[in-house]
């Protein structure tokens, strides 16, 4: 408080642009993969936009748990011990480990699909306590609409996911809720590790009209294996995140994880400026970013309608 007053006083007397107090933001993710790394970079860049720059007034820490929850717990303890200004855990287990380890240090989680189910917050609208963040529940209705627009004849959707990932299981449950009314049948294929992704994709051949890869850490890590099967068998493959489109998916609508990182940074910046996390509602990941990949579509025997290409924010060449 004294420091804060001193800073205000300095601004008043010297009339120089407000220089934010030095802060530390500690980021941790359960595993390293393109989407989660993009979220981390988004947080860093978003903070820079808000005036917190690495090397000037921001210390930006990052640790990955290498997929091991016990390591995630140790990283959480390390951060709590270091006492950073804000901790930003990416993904469910990392967030749970951090929230269990501190009731004082502000926590802004991101890329968590179901923050209430994960007991990170009691109420998404009024979190209370020291925790808030961004949920990355996919805009599934938009995804289904996109599938209908590009491949109108499709009736069955194959989904590849890891039943061991909390986020994915929540997604699949929601997807089924939306699919029925939209006239789709959902066929599940599970891959518990990256090495199983190709076989899971093969198991869908002949049974489904399109394949949908949700924001699943395991499957997204091995996306190329699924893309290969889709290309060989001429099955259009859609993704739940836009980062996967340049890697071979036909199209995706919605957020990319870099944007989620940017969105998370806006909350972190509020907390850094003194707002209590408990009074900031949990945000839903936003962005109606449409990314299409006509080349990939051609390999899978699909032509993306001109209207869709025109509307797209990014067309992968």
């Amino acid at each position: 408080m004294l420091k804060y007053l001193a800073a205000v006083a300095a601004v008043g007397f010297l009339a120089i642009p407000a220089k934010a107090e030095d802060v530390t933001v500690a980021v941790t993710a359960i595993v390293e993969h393109p989407a989660l790394d993009a979220a981390r970079d988004g947080v860093r860049d978003g903070l820079a936009d808000a005036g917190y720059k690495v090397g000037e007034n921001l210390t930006f820490l990052y640790e990955s748990a290498q997929g091991n929850p016990a390591t995630a717990a140790q990283i959480a303890r390390k951060y709590v011990g270091d006492g950073p200004t804000v901790i930003v855990p990416i993904s469910t287990p990392s967030a749970q480990a951090v929230v269990a380890a501190t009731k004082d240090i502000p926590v802004v989680f991101t890329a968590v699909t179901d923050p209430v189910g994960a007991e990170l917050v009691k109420d998404a609208a009024m979190p209370g306590g020291n925790v808030t963040g961004v949920s990355d529940l996919s805009p599934l209705a938009d995804h289904l609409a996109l599938i209908k627009e590009i491949t109108p004849d499709a009736k069955t959707i194959g989904v590849i996911f890891n039943p061991g990932e909390a986020n994915s299981v929540t997604l699949i449950e929601k997807l089924k809720e939306f699919a029925g009314p939209a006239g789709y049948e959902v066929v599940e294929a599970s891959a518990t590790k990256t090495a199983d992704v190709q076989q899971a994709a093969r198991s869908l051949v002949g049974k489904v009209d399109v394949i949908y890869v949700p924001t699943d850490n395991t499957v997204v890590s091995a996306l190329e294996a699924a893309v290969k099967v889709a290309e060989e068998n001429g099955i259009p493959l859609y993704a739940g995140d836009t980062d996967s489109v340049p890697r071979g998916a036909i199209a995706a609508v919605g957020f990319n994880y870099y944007d989620i990182g940017l969105q998370t940074a806006t909350i972190v910046a509020k907390v850094l400026k003194g707002e209590s996390p408990g009074s900031i509602p949990v945000m839903q990941a936003e962005g109606t970013n449409l990314v299409v990949n006509p080349g990939a579509a051609k390999k899978m025997g699909v032509t993306i309608p001109e209207a869709v290409i025109k509307r797209a924010n990014t067309v992968v060449q």
Binding site: P69, P93, A100
Partner: peptide, 20 residues
């Protein structure tokens, strides 16, 4: 005890237990 001290039970917590 791990679940209770760290706030969650997750199916992936077993990975590498034997090595540890």
């Amino acid at each position: 005890l791990f679940a209770q001290t760290n706030g969650f039970a997750d199916v992936t917590t077993g990975i590498g237990t034997i090595v540890v």
